[in-house]
């Protein structure tokens, strides 16, 4: 009975075709090709030669690859916690009616997101330069230090600086997402709470946060995926002492585009893919993330 009502007109397919064609050619094609490359030895000249699982064996014994995973995770944690905290706090504050010029603040906090990560990386590298950086000059001027600090020669400081770049760039974006979530919460819920005599804190914990859950989950998952792919900003800041700020994708870049070992570079890419997939699955396992909406 319903069967006849389905519109079999193929025009719909034509409309979605451009996306799928470009995805197959520019998205899926390279993904499959790099999967093939990960089983080969290829320096860019002649033809790739098939080497079976040799690259994957190499990857599993590659201490630098595992170190780069650790670095990436550390940098990600250092950036994500303050980033989401600041974003949520700012969103809650800017959502209040009594704040004047809220839209101006929205724009100001969003500005860092417009700057390319490369620029931010260069900017931070210059700011934290050992001899000529503005941070050291400032600290010297106020008398906080007598000798300049070699920021980027310290394993943890350099990681914190890279995390700082990411935080600075992304908190504004997350703030906007949170604001959108806040604005979607029906106003009568707050009014009801007010009538019942709930305090500001209670409304935030009992109404705002639970209703923000979908938005929080969205932010968390996109931050996991994005945060584990960091590349441009740390590339500008450098590998750090003892490769402490070498991220997974920087490692891939060095293999594929510095040493032109495309086969192994592709293998690292698939290694990184597995790491990111695992991290995403772990995110889903966090209590509450998969919880169904209560009736």
């Amino acid at each position: 009975m319903f069967k006849n009502k389905i519109n079999k007109n193929p025009h719909g397919y034509y409309f979605i075709a451009p996306f799928f064609i470009s995805f197959f050619v520019f998205g899926l094609g390279p993904i499959l090709y790099s999967f093939y490359l990960s089983f080969t030895d290829w320096s860019g000249f002649n033809q790739p030669s098939f080497v079976g699982f040799a690259n994957y064996e190499r990857l599993l014994g590659d201490a630098l690859f595992f170190k780069s995973i650790g670095n990436t995770l550390i940098i990600w944690i250092f950036s994500i916690i303050p980033q989401l905290t600041i974003a949520l706090t700012l969103a809650l504050v800017l959502h209040e009616k009594f704040i004047r010029g809220r839209h101006l603040f929205h724009a100001i906090f969003y500005f860092p997101n417009i700057i390319t990560p490369i620029t931010l990386g260069v900017m931070f590298a210059l700011m934290f330069d050992w001899q000529t950086g503005s941070i050291n000059k400032l600290l010297e001027a106020v008398g906080a230090i007598s000798e300049p600090i070699y920021w980027l020669n310290d394993v943890w400081l350099s990681r914190i600086i890279v995390a700082g770049v990411m935080m600075f760039q992304n908190f504004g974006f997350n703030m906007l997402v949170f604001l959108a979530g806040l604005q979607a919460i029906p106003h009568d819920l707050y009014e009801a709470a007010e009538i019942d005599g709930a305090s500001k804190f209670q409304t935030a914990i009992r109404i705002t946060l639970p209703l923000m859950r979908p938005v929080l989950i969205f932010t968390l998952i996109t931050s996991v995926i994005g945060g584990l792919q960091i590349f441009d900003a740390p590339l500008m800041i450098g590998k750090g002492p003892n490769d402490s700020t070498l991220t997974m994708i920087m490692n891939l870049y060095e293999a594929a585009f510095i040493r032109y070992d495309y086969g192994y570079g592709a293998t690292i890419a698939y290694g990184a893919f597995v790491v990111i997939a695992i991290a995403t699955v772990i995110t889903f396992l966090i209590p509450g993330v998969r919880k169904k909406k209560e009736a």
Binding site: D62, A63, L64, Y150, N153, P241, N242, A255, R259, D261
Partner: peptide, 22 residues
């Protein structure tokens, strides 16, 4: 930069070469 000796240089260097050029 870290006041280490040449043995440290050699071991780090050899590790990097092994890693990048199997």
């Amino acid at each position: 930069d870290n006041g280490q000796d040449y043995d440290t240089v050699l071991s780090k260097f050899k590790d990097s070469v092994k890693n990048g050029y199997p």
